[in-house]
Structure formats: structure tokens, C-alpha cells
Nucleic acid binder design. Sequence first.
DNA 1: CGAGGGTTTGAAGTGCATCAAATAGTGTGG
DNA 2: CCACACTATTTGATGCACTTCAAACCCTCG
Lengths: 244, 244
Amino acid sequence: MSAEKIIAQLKDVSLFRVCSSEFLERLSVSALIRKFDKGYLLFTQDDVAERFFVVLSGAVKMFRETKDGIQVVTGLLPEKTVFGETALFHDKKYPFSAEVIDSGEILSLPLSVLEAELDHNSVFSKHMIGIMAIREKMQEQEIEHLSIQTAPQRIGCFLLKTLSVGEICGGHDKAFENKKITLTLPYDKTLIAARLGMQPETFSRALKKLKADTNIKVSGALVTIENLQALRDYSCSACSTPPS
Amino acid sequence: MSAEKIIAQLKDVSLFRVCSSEFLERLSVSALIRKFDKGYLLFTQDDVAERFFVVLSGAVKMFRETKDGIQVVTGLLPEKTVFGETALFHDKKYPFSAEVIDSGEILSLPLSVLEAELDHNSVFSKHMIGIMAIREKMQEQEIEHLSIQTAPQRIGCFLLKTLSVGEICGGHDKAFENKKITLTLPYDKTLIAARLGMQPETFSRALKKLKADTNIKVSGALVTIENLQALRDYSCSACSTPPS
DNA sequence: CGAGGGTTTGAAGTGCATCAAATAGTGTGG
DNA sequence: CCACACTATTTGATGCACTTCAAACCCTCG
């Protein structure tokens, strides 16, 4: 891929939105892009980290594994998501494992380039702090949801987030108030279940209950929302910070 | 309190550990210190934020409340903890509410001073990113625990964390291997229960089970751990990243 | 068409919540 | 120093949500 194209792609990543062309240039020079197939393990928790990543296409699963083999999915990363960069602050070790769940291209960059920029570009550093603050808030919401939402509510919330954009930022698409909305589940139901901290069986049954309670239609991976507000009311009666 | 004393206290706060004396000076000038009694509500979620805080003594509860009045405790903050600073990145609104749970002194600082420093001191910014990265990792652990740990295990983990230091950083006190350890629960059992996302009744019963399963003794707020390793094994068989 | 994974369904069990009530602890004013 | 009031904690009984185990179903893809 040409340097220009790489720069264009990086500009589209929220972390790099504010960067000078010099920095983007520097990033593009040390960027590597490679296609990975579904199932590829990019790195494992505690691996020594040299580089961090950007999902260009496809999707990546962030997860941890306990001694007794239970997997906890801490994130499903859609396109344009940066990951692995925090290894810089964890003794250069990745704090989780990452696996490709949808074949696609992944760009990688040396952590050293990021670190160098943080060392002398406070505009960039501040921007990164802002991004981390948003992530922190979203994690707090997740904790809240795990504590107080039922399985059907968590699925409802997931649908609402999917309507915005993947799961990273809370975009605004107020366009479809009062209209029938159709969306496709972005991942396997089993995977979504894992992400929401429930068993596949529970997901299946909870989705059925959600269907009955909020007038959504489900057929395979296709979900049709008849009444968005009903879904919001149902899912977010237990949210302190309702999604957009 | 004299400026020197304030500076000494600030130096003891991890966020300010790397700061120049000039910056500390500037901070101390705009610092306000006030004593608050238990129960005082410092601010509410979505309040407009002018200042951020440091717990000098006593303790503070971070929480959110849902429409139907359910409270989720997102943090119990011991001394030397900074809080409210992320409001800077949430449209100057606090992303949670904060209440004093143990009377004590709280120092406050203008967010503007923090912002100014972030704007031109990349060393400080980078340090703050590091702190946020650690916090992020701890939150991920918390999510993991909520997903896969039982109530007794969560209590066990809480005890282990209490052994280190409050709940903010993972200090190392390897001193007491193989010895009998006595500790005092830092907060009311009801409060700890809320922090761990369970009901007081569940906490009581779970503690009893933990007692039976790991040979700890409990008498009021006093806990004696006979066999630290047993407690670790019991609590953290479901941890991907065991506490120190 | 047949194999294999993803998904659903059923039956049974477990853990936590809830409701109700007893008990222990703490701080107060007398 | 004691009795009262109030809160924290414990205990019991019951119900619900989710898990687990087992098996059927479905769908896609070679």
C-alpha cells in the first residue's frame, strides 16, 4: 500500500485524528500491513510487545484466559480500532490476548514511535488521554451493566450500540427515529454471548425474551427493530448513562 | 495548611509524583482543603466540573445511579487518591457522583491548572497516560471478576487487594508469606458488598463460605488469614492476572 | 449429500436476590 | 453507666436468572 493510502487510513483512526502530517509520515514509514485469516492469534497476554495495531478490515477479539481455561472476551474490535498500545505502560507486555475473528488487514506500528511522540508532543498526549478517558467511562458502564442488567437487557444494549458504530464510540444516527430499523448482528451469536458475559444458551433464550418484550424481529443474524424507543426503555431502564 | 505541607502531600499522590516543583507550587497555590463529614455529597454525576479532588484523609465513594434508583458503586477511594480529573474529557461534567464515606480532608484543584499542564508538559501527560492505563487494566480485571467469579471468590480477592493498598495500586508486601495475617475491613460490610456488586445478605453468606473454605477467621471487621496461599488459590483460580 | 460448527431447546441444578425477621453493635441522652 | 434508637449484620425461606449437561436442529460449505 502506498504511503499516501496508509496516511489516509491512519487519519481515519480516532487516536491519530489530531496528528501532524510529519507524525503521520513517520508512522506510515514504519507501518506494516498484513492480511490475517480468521482464527489467527496475533499475540497472547504477557507477550513482550514491540508493536501495536490498527484493524483496517475484518475484526479482532481481545480476551484473557484464566488458569482453568475460562475465556473472558474483553472486546470485539471493528475496523479503525487501535489496540495493544497500552502495552507501553505495562512493562511492554500485552495485557490481553488478541485473535482475528474476521479475516482482514491489520496494520502494525512500533511502540517506540508512539512513545517518542508522547515524549515530546503534548497535544497528541492530551488527545490520547481524552480517548482513554472515554474508554474508561465505557468500561464503567460495562461494569454497571454486568452488575444490574438482565441478559435480555444486555443484548438490547448491544443492539443499540451496534446501531451507532461497532462498539468503540457512541456515534449519533438520530436519522431513524420512529422508523423500522434493520441491522445485521456483526458477529456470531456465540461470540456476542461471550462478549456480554453469558452462555450461548442464555443468549438464545434471552434474545427470545427480548423479542417478546420489545417487538423486535429476529431471523438468523438479521434483527428488525420496530420501536426503537421501546427497546431503549426496556434495555436502559437500568443504565445510568443511556446510549445515544 | 502551609504551602510546603500541601506540596508534600501532593508529592505523595501518584499522579503528581513526577511533577516539577514549579508545577507543584502552582498546584498548591490554587489548592483548597476542607474537612467533610461522612455522608457529604461532593458532587453528582453530570454536575459541571470546575475542580478535581484528592482524598487527604477519610474515604470517598464513587457511584452512579440509574433511573430506577439502583446505585452502582464504581470505586471506594482511600487516601491519596485523585478523582474527578477525567471530567476534563467529558465536557467538564463529572462522569459519576462522589460521596464522603469516612470523614476527612479533601483537597481540590482547578481543572484548568491540570489542563494547562497537560497542554505543554508532555512528561506529565505521559505519566498520566500510564496511570490511566493501569486503571484501565484494573477495570478489565473487575469486569472479568464480575463475569466469572463467585461471591466468595470476589470477597477473597477484595481481601487480597486490601492487603496491598486500598484498591488503587498493587503494592508489594511479600513480607507476610507463611505467617498469620490480621487485617481490618476498611469499610462497612454493606459498603464492600455494594462495591463487589452483591447484596449485603449475599456478602454475609459468602463470607461465611469463604471462611469455611479457606481457613480464615472473621470476627466483626477483623479478618485473620491463616494460609495466604490457600486464599490466593481459592480466589484467583478464576483470575487471569492474580494480584501481587 | 454429508460433516461440522453454530444455534436452539429441554431438563435439572446452582447461585444470588428478595422478602421477612431476628440479632448484634453503636452512639445517644438520661 | 444504662436504656433506647437506629443501623449494621446475620439468618431463614423462597423465587428467579443463569448455568450446565444433553440432545436436537439448522445451516453452510466442501
